[in-house]
């Protein structure tokens, strides 16, 4: 799964075609580890309907601060705008994730 940094955030997230789900994570975060395979499976299930990328908050402190990430994992759904369309704090099951994305227009 692509790890986005400040350098390619605009290209890979804001200017991407279609919705992009960003998972803010860190290597030391245990629920993030639990969540990682769920994101992989969700990407596989949804295919081209969404692009899922990750941001390491220790390596991309500015992005984490800009988007006021204070707890991880935090998910943000971007749809071409500077501000995310939706934010979810915490991890969830694959079913919940797919439902949450559907509620926010990714079907």
């Amino acid at each position: 799964m692509l790890v986005v940094t400040s350098e390619n955030f605009e290209q890979e997230v804001l200017k991407a075609q279609g919705p992009v789900l960003v998972d803010f994570f860190a290597d030391w975060c245990m629920p993030c580890k639990m969540f990682a395979p769920i994101l992989e499976d969700a990407q596989e299930q949804l295919g081209s309907r969404i692009k899922i990328v990750k941001i390491n908050i220790d390596e991309s402190i500015q992005l984490a601060q800009k988007y006021r990430v204070m707890s991880i994992p935090t998910l943000k759904l971007f749809t071409g705008e500077e501000e995310p369309r939706a934010t979810f704090v915490g991890a969830m099951s694959q079913e919940e994730l797919v439902d949450w994305l559907a509620e926010n227009g990714v079907e």
Binding site: A26, M30, D58, R68, M70, S71, I72, V89, G90
Partner: peptide, 16 residues
């Protein structure tokens, strides 16, 4: 305020 200062997991969010 969850994720905005309220946390239930120190090992998850401590570094912030």
């Amino acid at each position: 305020l969850r994720g905005r200062g309220v946390s239930y997991c120190a090992t998850c969010d401590g570094m912030f």
